[in-house]
Computed example of a mutant assay.
Amino acid sequence: MASDATSSAHNSSRAPEPVGLYPHARRAGNLLFLSGVGPRQRGEKQVPGVELDTAGRIVAYDFERQCHAVFQNVRYILEEAGARWEDLVDVTVYLTNMRNDFPTYNRLYAQYFQSNQPCRTTVEVNCLPTPIAIELKCIAVIS
């Protein structure tokens, strides 16, 4: 964990290991910026609910299961960095299949964010670095 007077990196012991050289989150003043968070589970390479063919391409996936896993991973990172779910102020959502998955995502998002409603942007991307269908990029304010 690097630290100085204005910025500090945070890594969660419960969220999945980053797939590159970056922290789970970085605090700058009272803002906490989360790196992209996917549904993988700590210590596991297989993505919850994802079925791959022998070439590693996605054959089928349980999008709802991935959503729940992503939200749990975000919560882990927030908590271990000293923030709460209610501290989220901005969420950027990356989906690999907007047409099929957005209705499910929107329904689950409404359940998770009933009392706290951060700003949100949702975009479709061609693919993500691992065989996942969703990734979140979040900003929280720590008081």
Results as ranks from 00 to 15, higher is better:
1 M>R: 05
1 M>S: 06
1 M>Q: 03
2 A>P: 01
2 A>W: 13
4 D>N: 11
4 D>Y: 04
4 D>F: 00
5 A>K: 13
5 A>C: 02
5 A>L: 13
6 T>W: 13
6 T>D: 11
6 T>G: 08
7 S>E: 01
7 S>Q: 11
8 S>E: 10
8 S>H: 01
9 A>K: 14
10 H>N: 04
10 H>I: 02
11 N>D: 08
11 N>G: 05
11 N>V: 05
12 S>Y: 04
12 S>L: 08
14 R>L: 09
15 A>W: 11
16 P>S: 15
18 P>H: 09
19 V>Q: 09
19 V>M: 08
20 G>E: 09
20 G>D: 14
20 G>S: 12
22 Y>W: 14
23 P>V: 07
24 H>M: 06
25 A>G: 09
26 R>W: 03
26 R>H: 03
26 R>C: 05
27 R>P: 02
27 R>Q: 10
27 R>A: 03
27 R>N: 07
28 A>V: 13
29 G>S: 08
31 L>K: 13
31 L>Y: 09
32 L>V: 13
33 F>K: 11
34 L>C: 07
34 L>R: 08
34 L>Q: 12
34 L>V: 09
35 S>D: 07
38 G>Q: 12
38 G>K: 14
39 P>T: 11
39 P>W: 09
39 P>K: 14
40 R>I: 08
40 R>L: 11
41 Q>H: 12
41 Q>C: 03
42 R>C: 02
42 R>K: 13
42 R>P: 00
43 G>R: 08
43 G>L: 05
44 E>C: 11
44 E>I: 12
45 K>N: 12
45 K>G: 00
45 K>Q: 07
46 Q>N: 15
46 Q>G: 10
46 Q>T: 15
47 V>Q: 12
48 P>L: 15
48 P>G: 11
48 P>S: 15
48 P>A: 15
48 P>N: 13
48 P>M: 14
49 G>S: 09
49 G>V: 06
50 V>W: 06
51 E>H: 10
51 E>V: 15
52 L>R: 14
53 D>G: 08
53 D>L: 10
53 D>S: 12
54 T>E: 15
54 T>K: 15
54 T>S: 13
55 A>F: 05
55 A>Q: 14
55 A>H: 13
56 G>K: 10
56 G>Q: 09
56 G>V: 05
56 G>M: 07
57 R>H: 07
57 R>G: 06
58 I>F: 04
59 V>C: 00
59 V>P: 00
59 V>Y: 01
60 A>T: 02
60 A>D: 01
61 Y>S: 10
61 Y>C: 09
61 Y>H: 06
61 Y>W: 09
61 Y>V: 03
62 D>L: 04
63 F>T: 00
64 E>M: 00
64 E>V: 00
64 E>L: 01
66 Q>A: 01
66 Q>Y: 00
67 C>P: 00
67 C>G: 00
67 C>M: 02
67 C>Q: 03
67 C>K: 04
68 H>E: 08
